[in-house]
Design a protein around this nucleic acid. Structure first.
Ligand SMILES: Nc1ncnc2c1ncn2[C@@H]1O[C@H](COP(=O)(O)OP(=O)(O)OP(=O)(O)O)[C@@H](O)[C@H]1O
Length: 683
DNA sequence: CAGCCGACTGTTTTT
DNA sequence: CAGTCGGCTG
């Protein structure tokens, strides 16, 4: 698209933010006022008009989904050049830099990234060693808040010393470092340390990093915390780039204070970047008048906010529908029926519809119903599909097949299903591998070869039974690896055969009750069929390149990429819906104790919950539904539940109450559709 | 010492 | 209700 016609799609204020160059810009504006549009159009302007190199433009935000949204909107504008622009989360930008420079900080460049569960097991291990009995969650929370609030390396050091858990914290840090691992916060922290280090090599590297940025943009700025702000400041210390920054945000949408994001960051920015120009946008282009009017009246109940104008030229459209359900199942049925009433009306598609909730587990009743009814949907985030035990197991098989020297994967599945390689034998194997400096897979190889085995000293350590078990495992891997190299069958087919041969499904059956088994099989099948359907654009004919499959799987597991977006109904938390928009939005579980959460202790936190509700409402373009249950099960017992006070804050004139009775019993139709589902599965 | 059983406990939100 | 932990048994 040409630049001038593009610029004309902006209002005057947006235009000003886009074409201002040579001084820092801070755009403060409410939901749906076109802040992300400012970012994307400005990038195009910088490239086409100012002539900046696309690969030197860096655009950051906090959440994955917002980063993806930003990236895809950039690519819509700039299909080719857009690809070289860095548009990502702070975390993945840090990873990218640290993969290059972490050697300077005493890590190897291939450091691994520990997620929350990994960190918990490290803490538990140390707890056992030190014979301490402290809640691991509290320790990790303490560590996280320390890491995210410091001003310097020295301050970090002394904070650790002073902390009451200092001993366990130090061991945790040491453990990670000696295992060449970083947790999520380390990713940011180490980048910050690199940028502020006095070491000669670090200074040189930092200079290279700064030189690689000619313009920096930050979206959803209200979600950044102090550490992220410090990184922004450090990245812009070049004479040539320290004015080249545009930051956009909205104080009414700050919903991450639990991890240290604060609106003080906005004040800090105004102070630290001299000559900064603040631009406010007022016009909302996203939502109907009904929705905007309602949202405005909710958020105005917050005392701690900058008052701002919000208006829209959009039509009034429909009022907001409120529905009271007798159970989560009935709530799901209501949503389901509404979805079918709206689908294809005015061209509404599945992907135009979102179901938003406060807590991940609220997705459950909807997911269950949609599976039953065969409604196309995707649950974003939550209990990560790739974190599931069965998915991790078979993925480890996949990685071991492709690269048997991937020892994390190999060790995970070496005794799954049980094949006589217990902890004792495993310890021996690992210590032999360490002592002789030979990879475990190579030890297996020697053990499996009669002559080599007899000549090696391994014969002194492994008896005949143990040897048989190890050999069987080795030969299994080798046999399937050969099949892969022969390329006679597609990888997914070979892999499927292997999973059948090892009896993984029987293993699951043995170790789980019937219900869990069924769901695990479901996840396993969907994993395997995703492999079956996998096709890379570069793959010739119908041949699947196994290494591409493996690479993609790694990225998916690390959350570096999301699966291809399909036309389905979206289910996600309000937090992760930030920055997105949908024609139809259902806010479900709008109950006291859910939103606002029962955890809140003061007015400040109540205001954050209200901001969350405001974010949810302002995701909707045309249709907004708010539903709640009057009864909900907790801990296996039923409790009454009451509508959220935020619903009462919406003016009556914008509301309609749906009182349709929903029959929540399972119908003959449902049974027929389950039957169909099963028959289709068997085919 | 692995595996099973029963008692106990506890639901924010993301990277 | 579901997931975790600790103690008991083979
Ligand atoms: N000047 C404009 N004219 C017409 N449509 C616009 C204009 N600016 C933005 N829009 C549209 O309005 C919608 C909201 O814009 P955008 O997502 O950029 O808002 P935002 O301020 O980033 O919202 P949020 O803070 O909620 O993420 C988008 O669909 C966008 O294409």
């Amino acid at each position: 698209m040409n630049l001038d016609s593009l610029i004309n799609k902006l209002n005057d204020k947006q235009k000003e933010a886009v074409i201002s160059f040579g001084f820092p810009i801070l755009v403060l504006a409410p939901a749906g006022s076109g802040k992300t549009r400012v970012i994307t159009f400005k990038i195009m302007y910088l490239i086409e008009k100012i002539g900046l190199n696309p690969s030197k433009i860096v655009s950051l935000t906090f959440t994955n989904k917002a980063a993806n949204e930003m990236k895809s909107r950039i690519i819509d504008l700039l299909p080719t050049k857009g690809k070289s622009i860095v548009a990502s989360t702070f975390h993945s930008y840090s990873v990218r830099l640290l993969r290059k420079y972490s050697g300077l900080l005493g890590y190897k460049e291939n450091f691994s990234i520990y997620d929350f569960d990994d960190s918990i097991s490290v803490i538990n291990r140390i707890k056992r060693e030190l014979k301490l009995d402290i809640d691991a969650n509290i320790i990790l929370y303490t560590i996280a808040s320390m890491k995210n609030s410091i001003n310097s390396f020295e301050e970090y050091r002394s904070l650790i010393e002073e902390n009451e858990f200092s001993k366990i914290i130090k061991q945790y840090i040491e453990y990670l470092k000696s295992h060449n691992a970083m947790d999520f916060d380390d990713l940011l922290l180490n980048l910050f340390f690199l940028l502020t280090s006095k070491d000669k090599n670090c200074i040189e590297a930092s200079q290279k990093i700064r030189d690689s940025i000619s313009y920096l943009l930050v979206d959803e700025y209200q979600d950044t915390n102090k550490l992220q702000y410090m990184i922004v400041k450090e990245l812009l210390k070049n004479n040539s780039n320290h004015n080249n920054v545009t930051i956009v945000g909205d104080d009414d949408q700050g919903i991450y204070s639990f991890r240290g994001s604060t609106i003080e960051n906005i004040l800090r920015f105004e102070n630290d970047f001299a000559g900064c120009k603040v631009i406010c946008l007022e016009n909302n282009y996203r939502s109907s008048q009904a929705i905007l009017h309602a949202a405005k009246n909710v958020i105005k109940n917050n005392q701690n906010r900058k008052i701002k104008e919000m208006k829209t030229d959009n039509p009034y459209k429909s009022k907001i529908t409120i529905f009271e359900a007798n159970s989560p199942q009935e709530e799901a049925l209501f949503v389901y029926e509404k979805i079918y009433q709206l689908l294809y009306k005015d061209g509404i598609r599945y992907k135009d519809i979102a179901i938003l909730y406060r807590n991940n587990h609220l997705a459950r009743s909807f997911e269950e119903l949609f599976i039953l009814k065969n409604l196309k949907h995707k649950v974003w985030g939550g209990y990560n599909f790739y974190a599931r035990e069965e998915v991790r197991d078979v993925s480890a098989y996949l990685f071991s097949l492709l690269n048997p020297y991937d020892e994390v994967s190999l060790l995970r599945i070496i005794n799954i299903p049980k094949r006589g390689i217990g902890t004792k034998l495993l310890e021996k194997l690992i210590s032999q591998s360490k002592q002789n400096g030979i990879h475990i897979f190579d030890i297996l190889k020697i053990i499996s070869n009669d002559d080599e085995f007899k000549e090696s000293m391994l014969i002194n350590f492994f008896n005949e039974n143990e040897r048989e078990s190890l050999k069987a495992f080795y030969e299994l891997l080798v046999r399937y690896r050969q099949q892969i190299f022969q390329k006679e069958k597609n990888f997914s087919v070979i892999f499927n055969e292997m999973i059948e041969e090892i009896g993984y499904k029987d293993y699951l059956k043995l170790h789980n009750d019937e219900k869990t088994y069924d769901s695990k099989i479901g996840y396993l099948e969907s994993f395997l069929s995703s492999l079956y359907n996998y096709k890379d654009e570069d793959d010739e004919y119908d041949y699947q390149n196994p290494y591409k499959i493996g690479e993609r799987l790694r990225l998916l597991m690390n959350n570096d990429i999301e699966e291809k977006e399909e036309d389905c109904v979206n289910l996600m938390t309000i937090h992760s819906a930030k920055g997105l928009e949908f024609r139809v939005v259902f806010i479900v579980g709008a109950e006291k104790g859910i939103i606002p959460s029962s955890k809140i202790v003061d007015r400040k936190e109540l205001e954050e919950e209200r901001r969350l509700f405001y974010v949810a409402m302002t995701r909707a373009k045309e249709f907004l539904f708010i539903t709640y249950c009057n009864e909900r099960s907790k801990f296996g017992k039923k409790f009454p539940s009451y509508p959220s006070e935020f619903i009462e804050e919406i003016p009556e004139q914008d509301l309609v109450y749906d009182t349709k009775k929903i029959d929540a019993t399972v119908t003959a139709n449902d049974i027929a559709s389950i039957k169909n589902l099963l028959i289709n599965k068997m085919k």
